[in-house]
C-alpha cells in the first residue's frame, strides 16, 4: 500500500461517507470516528443490559401467564441486543470487558431512563410504550449509520423491538379500559415516565457539541431535537386513544409548524440523573457489578473445562 498522508486519507474517507458507502471494520477511519463509535455503541450496549433490570423485577409479578411469557421474551431480547452491540464494538478494536468495566466504574454512561424505578405494573406497559417507543425512534435513524456493523445490528434490533412497543401499548389499553383504579395507575405511570422519555433523546441541539461532527460522518442522521419532536408528534394521538393526559399544560398542536408545541425540559434533572444522582443509579451499577463479580467463577470454570477437553483431544 502506498503511504498516504493523513489529510488525503481523511479526504477519501469523507468522500466515501458522502457517497453513502458504508465503512467496514478493517477500512481506514479517523481515530476520532472510531472513538466516537466505540463510545456510542458501548453506551448503547450498556443501556440494553441495564434496561433489563427495571423490567426483570416484574417477571415474577406479572398478572398472568401471557404477560409473563411476553415480558420474559422482551427482557431476553434486551440481553440479545446488548450482545449484538458488544460484538459490534469489538469490530472497532475495543476490548469488550474493558467497556463493561468502564460502565461499572461510572466512566461510561447508559440511557438515563433506566435510573427511574418501575414501581407498579402499569410502569411495565408504559416502559414498553414510551421508553421502547423513544428508543425505536432513535434506532430507526441509526439503521442508516455509516458504520456497517452498527447499522446492521440496528436493523435487527428495530425489527425485534417493534413488538416491545406494541405489547406495552396493549397492556395499557387493558388497564385504561379496566377499573378506575387501574386507569389511575396507568395515568400515574404516564406522569412519571413522560418527561424522562423525552430526555432520552439527549441534550437539545445547541447543548450537544459533538452532534455536528456525528452528522457530518453520518453516524447520526437527525438531531436530538428533531427526533424528540417526531416522538412527541407520534405519541400524542396514542395517548388520546388511551384516554391518558400528558403531564404538560403547554402541550398543544401548532397549525403553523405542523407539530406539537411542548414545555421546555428540566435539564437540571437530566444532568443530575446522568451524573449519578437519579433514584436508582447506585442500585443499577451495583447489580451489574455484582453480576460480573459473582458470575466470574462460572466463566472461569467453563474456560477450564474447555481447556481440559482440548488437551484430552490432542493427547
Amino acid at each position: 500500500m502506498k503511504t498516504m498522508d493523513l489529510q488525503e486519507l481523511e479526504k477519501r474517507f469523507q468522500e466515501k461517507i458522502d457517497k453513502e458507502i458504508k465503512i467496514e471494520p478493517n477500512d481506514w477511519m479517523p481515530d476520532e470516528y472510531r472513538k466516537t463509535l466505540i463510545r456510542q455503541i458501548s453506551q448503547h450496549a450498556h443501556s440494553e443490559i441495564v434496561g433489563m433490570l427495571p423490567e426483570g423485577n416484574w417477571i415474577t409479578r406479572a398478572p398472568n401467564l401471557r404477560r409473563k411469557a411476553v415480558l420474559l421474551a422482551k427482557v431476553q431480547d434486551e440481553a440479545g441486543h446488548g450482545l449484538y452491540l458488544y460484538s459490534s464494538v469489538e469490530t472497532l478494536g475495543a476490548d469488550r470487558e474493558a467497556t463493561i468495566d468502564d460502565l461499572h466504574s461510572g466512566k461510561a454512561k447508559y440511557s438515563s431512563i433506566f435510573n427511574y424505578p418501575a414501581v407498579t405494573w402499569a410502569d411495565i406497559g408504559t416502559i414498553g410504550w414510551l421508553v421502547d417507543g423513544a428508543a425505536i425512534m432513535n434506532q430507526v435513524a441509526l439503521c442508516r449509520c455509516s458504520y456497517g456493523p452498527y447499522a446492521r445490528g440496528m436493523v435487527k434490533i428495530c425489527k425485534e423491538e417493534s413488538f416491545h412497543q406494541r405489547q406495552g401499548f396493549e397492556s395499557l389499553v387493558t388497564l385504561c379500559n379496566g377499573t378506575p383504579t387501574q386507569k389511575a395507575m396507568a395515568q400515574d405511570a404516564m406522569n412519571r415516565f413522560w418527561w424522562p422519555a423525552l430526555m432520552m433523546f439527549g441534550p437539545s441541539d445547541d447543548e450537544s457539541p459533538n452532534s455536528a461532527q456525528s452528522m457530518k460522518w453520518k453516524i447520526k442522521r437527525f438531531s436530538n431535537d428533531e427526533l424528540r419532536q417526531s416522538f412527541v408528534d407520534a405519541t400524542v394521538p396514542q395517548a388520546e386513544i388511551l384516554g391518558l393526559t400528558i403531564p404538560d399544560p403547554n402541550l398543544k398542536w401548532n397549525e403553523e409548524t405542523g407539530h406539537y408545541d411542548f414545555s421546555p425540559i428540566n435539564w437540571d434533572e437530566f444532568w443530575q440523573v446522568v451524573n449519578g444522582n437519579g433514584p436508582c443509579n447506585k442500585e443499577r451499577i451495583e447489580a451489574r457489578t455484582k453480576a460480573k463479580e459473582e458470575g466470574m467463577w462460572v466463566r472461569e470454570a467453563a474456560m477450564a473445562y474447555a481447556e481440559k477437553r482440548a488437551l484430552k483431544k490432542t493427547a
Binding site: 421474551a73 450482545l83 449484538y84 445490528g153 467453563a302 473445562y305 474447555a306
Partner: peptide
Amino acid sequence: VGSLRAPDATLALANARDVYTRR
C-alpha cells in the same frame, strides 16, 4: 450474522442459538 464469545464450540453453538435465532 455476527459474533459472540464462548469458551468452546459446544457453548458457542448454544449461545448462537439463543442470541441469533430467537425468531
